[in-house]
Design a protein around this nucleic acid. Structure first.
Length: 717
RNA sequence: GCCGGGGUGGUGGAAUGGUUUACACGUACGACUCAAAAUCGUAUGGACGCAAGUCCAUGAGGGUUCGACUCCCUCUCCCGGCACCA
């Protein structure tokens, strides 16, 4: 399809996979099939559907794997790319293979770096010292997701926090907008709630606890609280422990030490002690809290342990007001969202395009000098000491200052993988345009994305980063929309025989084997038949056999004269399948087709036109079979270019209806009558039946009647 | 702890106020076959019963309603996410 001339653009995007060496996971195929069916359906409805695919092959996941098997990440990327694309060609999706994106391709990361420069120029990228997760054994920085219960994901060593100077993106500046915009998005409530929690807005008050000695005001302590209405119960103030002292987030035990100081409770004027405790996070709020044992369970636990006073009280709204009026409190809104840490002391990522000059400080690399190529080096293993492998390569980092031309050094850290994937959807339509990150006209035409399909596990990080970046780029004038995905559909998880698939259990399905054995259409159909895609499904080999049987049966349908007896059923099927695909309930669309096919065999076959309708209904789900059957009917190529069939609403209506006759809400009889038959007539018919008569004879009853559905004779006790 | 999602036959699931268990898997029996596979047919929630039939059943308990898998309340278990969130 020609993207420039398309009339009714529909951008059908699925989250691109990161290519593991094991190859395409059946879970990928599950998600991609679900997305592809929707895209093919939209195409048959007359949309120009753009459905691209690519690889998220830069970053720590791929790098770790390469390290593990001792292969150079660059070489590894080439191998996995070949395998992945070969596999992706086999899953029956209508990808636009002329527009692929690989995040490790210099033609791509050139623009990832360009975005970094734009962020820097806009004041949204800054440097700060931050504590990162550090594994002493692997000597490397770990991402938060790689730390599980305080331990390194790879070697189970207890991780520590290490202070390093890093690059950050100022996502917190957009916290409120990220929150507000959620309202207007056609996303599942689940994902929206997850984002709201992640952003974690809380409204509270900064309260000032004055020092006991009025002269030493610098010994006052400010705390942040969302519950100033409990301030009169505060019997201590707790401040965070020093970073140096042990603070493992795994430990549930409350530990503290009295500082020897006292402050005054602003509400009561009481003198209360100041403690250092391990359960206060120094990076949130003011790094100090008021301890209210009567109201907060953690504070109570702590007070009990150290014998601190507990003043029982009830929350009192008046303190909100008095705090402000009397000047010892100030309303503030806080967010739990943290700025996005971009730096990675690793090899396999885009070098951050910044240069440090002794005279001019940090300068961005000139845009016409991008990309800063990632050099092919042999010592790519992370070694620690807070620096990435590139820091060992003079030929890489020695450069000149873009501003003064003096001797300067490049940044040797690379950027986070999440940055690679935070803008790829902008690139797809513009692949091949070498002079811009994205073409203005194409972007106007194709974006934002109409339908985005992917895993719910990306609700917080990936989806928040893309939204943030899109907003920032809009504010800089590079885009004219601020929400990247109009609709987001989260698929569920595919399991095998009731258990999560994992390498250690050895129950991971390789889609290639199944495609080889059963054919891609049968695998697609089976995956979609398991249940609603948003709920996930349980893959069982016996079920796979069943679907194969169905497909064989389909191919055997005798086609001849139209069967009038099937006409109504066919129109109903068109309605049902269309509606089910629209809401991504492919499982019930398939059952409906199965039911129809069962009825086809009852009447001994299908008319040619009728068959044509069925094959078109099946085209999105079973693209090859539908094509073949369509061709056999003599239909013009291709079935996928045909219009989605229409149904006649009048033909769907039955003139007969089954009315269920109940006595005291228990089913006693079923009557087939004209749809419009009135209550009296149905009642007469019902009473003529012995099954009803024996329950109501000689008794008084009242009648509940729903035309065409229910006649309930209620004998009141 | 908080926030989501869920609990329906032997299994995956269907049904969003009106015949619970669609569709499929599995199982049993039968047909075809020398035999097996494949295919086709029949049956298949539970209890009692020769049968007609009756009663019970959508995690547990209660409520609303002529009628509840569906709506409301309480509880419970499973799955997922977040978490010393001040």
């Amino acid at each position: 399809m020609d993207l420039e001339s398309a009339k009714k653009p529909f951008y059908n995007l699925m989250m691109f996979p990161y290519p593991s060496a094991e190859g395409l996971h059946v879970g990928n195929m599950y998600a991609f099939t679900a997305a592809d069916i929707y895209g093919r359906f939209k195409m048959m409805q007359g949309f120009d559907v753009f459905e691209p695919i690519g690889l998220d092959g830069f970053g720590i996941h791929s790098e770790n794997f390469a390290l593990k098997i001792g292969r150079h990440p660059m070489e590894h990327a080439k191998i996995t790319e070949k395998n992945f694309y070969a596999q992706l060609h086999k899953v029956g999706n209508m990808y636009d293979w002329s527009k692929t994106v690989e995040t490790y391709d210099p033609d791509y990361y050139r623009w990832t770096q360009w975005i970094f420069v734009q962020m820097y120029k806009a004041g949204l990228a800054y440097r700060a010292t931050s504590k990162v997760n550090w594994c002493p054994k692997c000597k490397t920085v770990l991402a938060d997701e790689q730390v599980i219960d305080g331990k390194c994901e790879r070697c189970s060593t207890e991780t520590i926090k290490k202070a390093l100077e890093q690059w950050f993106f100022r996502i917190t500046k957009y916290a409120q907008r990220l929150l507000d915009n959620l309202e207007g998005l056609d996303w599942s409530e689940k994902v929206k709630i997850s984002q709201r929690n992640w952003i974690g807005r809380s409204e509270g008050v900064i309260l000032n606890f004055k020092a006991t000695n009025p002269k030493s005001q610098n010994e006052s302590i400010s705390v942040f609280t969302t519950r100033p209405d409990t301030v009169h119960g505060a019997t201590f103030v707790a401040v965070a422990t020093q970073a140096s002292s042990l603070k493992s987030q795994a430990s549930k035990e409350k530990i503290g030490k009295f500082t020897g100081r006292y402050v005054l409770n602003p509400a009561t004027g009481n003198k209360i002690p100041v403690w250092r405790v391990n359960y206060v996070d120094e990076s949130y709020g003011t790094g100090a809290i008021m301890g209210v044992p009567a109201h907060d369970t953690r504070d109570r636990e702590f007070a009990n342990k150290y014998g601190i006073d507990i003043v029982e009280m009830e929350p009192d709204e008046k303190w909100w007001k008095r705090a402000e009026e009397e000047g010892w409190g100030k309303r503030e809104t806080h967010y739990h969202l943290r700025d996005w840490l971009i730096s990675r002391q690793r090899y396999w990522g885009p070098p951050i395009p910044m240069i440090k000059c002794p005279k001019c400080d940090w300068q961005p690399v000139a845009e016409d000098q991008l990309p800063v190529l990632l050099p092919e080096i042999d010592d790519y293993q992370p070694e620690g000491e807070g620096k990435g492998p590139l820091a060992k390569h003079k030929e890489f980092y020695e450069t000149k200052c873009p501003k003064c031309g003096g001797v300067a050094v490049r940044e040797t850290d690379v950027s986070d993988t999440f940055l690679d994937s935070a803008w790829y959807f902008l690139r797809y339509p513009s692949v091949g345009k070498d002079s811009v990150a994205w073409d203005k006209e194409l972007t106007k035409k194709w974006l934002p994305v109409d339908m985005y399909t992917g895993g719910p596990e990306h609700s917080n990080l990936h989806l928040l980063y893309t939204r943030f970046l899109t907003m920032a780029l809009k504010d800089m004038g590079h885009l004219d929309f601020e929400e990247p995905f109009k609709r987001f559909f989260a698929h569920g998880m595919l399991i095998k025989d009731g258990a999560k698939m994992s390498k250690s259990k050895g129950n991971v399905i390789n889609p290639d084997e199944y495609i080889e054995k059963y054919g891609v259409d049968a695998v697609r159909m089976y995956l979609m038949f398991l249940g609603p895609v948003d709920q996930g499904g349980d893959f069982r080999d016996t079920g796979m056999e069943g679907m194969t049987r169905f497909i064989r049966r389909l191919a055997k349908i005798p086609v001849g004269e139209d069967k009038p007896a099937l006409e109504r059923g066919l129109h109903r099927l068109v309605k049902k399948v269309g509606e089910d695909i629209e809401r991504r309930h492919y499982n019930t669309a398939i059952s409906a087709i199965m039911e129809f096919v069962n009825s086809v065999f009852e009447v001994g076959g299908l008319g040619k036109d009728q068959a044509g309708v069925v094959w078109r209904l099946m085209a999105p789900m079973a693209p090859y079979l539908a094509e073949e059957m369509w061709e056999r009917l003599g239909g013009e190529f291709s079935v996928h270019q045909q219009r989605w069939p229409e149904y006649d609403p009048k033909l769907i209506l039955e003139e007969k209806a089954t009315v269920v006759v109940q006595v005291n809400s228990r089913v006693r009889e079923k009557l087939v009558v004209d749809k419009e038959t009135d209550a009296k007539t149905v009642e007469q018919l019902a009473l003529a039946s012995d099954k009803v008569k024996k329950y109501v004879e000689g008794k008084k009853y009242r009648v509940v009647f729903v035309p065409g559905k229910i006649l309930n004779l209620v004998i009141d006790a």
